[in-house]
Write a protein that binds this DNA or RNA. Structure first.
Lengths: 208, 208
DNA sequence: TAGATTGTTAATCGATTAACAATC
DNA sequence: TAGATTGTTAATCGATTAACAATC
């Protein structure tokens, strides 16, 4: 099993989601060609990706669905549970709390935080919401690994520092803020402005 | 000015956002090194990107901020207004309606739609919300180019088809649904499951 | 047997990285 | 002049694409 680059890695959850559906329909084998057709991808790319999972396929038959699912779950980290916390229970934050797909990927959001007192001490989508001054303590108590950042941009740095003080090792940053954190903290930016720029550029390209 | 690949393109909005801040501080010149340091990027990459904008820099001084901003606005499509509509005013949809950054990128959301009558005929963040059966007509009337899809996954295909019937040419798909649309419709997937998988994989990698 | 599919190797392409010359 | 920064060319790396052999 070889290493996956970022681009190949981004296709794995797509395979996984589709294969799980197929497993529910009791399909035992899936060919690379069938996956490619269903996802609108190039069959050669899919075959290459599947080969790199280490699962062996059978000519004329395809790959065993359950084995593929297991391999993909391992590769995407869905086979182990990650404890996360979320700060900022605004519209975006509560949308994320209510997103059911995360659970299937092994993400457990154990606590949320908000600066506004009226949003605290409730339970949203099964997750208790605490005031911001409880961040460090709660992160420590839960042993959380991942911090999800959906606060206003001007609070992002401060909250991120509290995450780190609580022992978090990765931050999923939904704010446009540029975080300045100690080495070794994994920060993944989730920036809608970036996605939109890519989309607009492509749109412009084709209208030329 | 050369072409930008997807990866380089994703850095342009980061430069643009920072340069706009610097412009407000009346900074006239920005060096690639300074941008790289502020954004945590490799200086070589930044220099290459800036060179490809076509703007000329001056050794020891840097690039003229205003010229860079103009070039980046053109490249990211922020210099022309795109008319968009949004379907699905749930938590995610209303979060997007309230996001102020889109406007600065040239995105104008002229109308929103929802299947629930109690969410219709209101105005959210300046955008009127109409019932779903008004999609085709409204898209036509506005001459909208882009459709933003934040409906539940099982409605995605149907709504996407209505977008297309109204004459939309690109869809920003926030649902996990696989859309089956005519050739020539640009579909950009915005899939949190994909981002999460990348994050979890990286997290796993380093803990090994 | 024939044909579809996997598996592997090579070729192409593009992006990143490195090195260095040019310039203010 | 010295030194920082841009601009350019070459080298490296990785991903995609293509071609074809192996296999059921």
């Amino acid at each position: 099993m070889a290493a996956f680059g970022t681009q190949a890695l981004q296709r794995l959850p797509l395979y996984l989601r589709l294969l799980r559906e197929w497993a529910l329909e009791a399909r035992e084998f899936a060919s690379g060609a069938a996956l490619a057709a269903a996802l609108g991808l190039d069959p050669i790319v899919v075959r290459k990706d599947l080969a790199r999972t280490g699962v062996r396929g059978t000519p004329r038959v395809g790959f065993p669905v359950n084995e593929l699912i297991q391999a993909l779950e391992r590769l995407t980290g869905a086979d182990r549970e990650i404890m996360a916390v979320l700060a900022g229970v605004g519209r975006l934050g509560s949308a994320l709390l209510g997103y059911p797909g995360f659970r299937r990927q092994g993400l457990r959001i154990g606590a949320a935080f908000d600066a506004a007192p009226e949003r605290c001490n409730l339970i949203l989508a099964g997750t208790p919401v605490f005031p911001s001054n409880a961040i460090v303590e709660t992160v420590l108590r839960l042993g959380a690994t991942l911090g999800i950042l959906t606060v206003p941009a001007d609070r992002a740095q401060r909250v991120a520092e509290q995450f780190v003080a609580g022992g978090i090792s990765a931050i999923w940053n939904f704010t446009p803020a540029q975080l300045d954190l100690p080495e070794g903290i994994l920060v993944q930016r989730e920036d809608l402005a970036v996605s939109l720029a890519v989309l607009l550029h492509r749109l412009q390209e084709r209208s030329v």
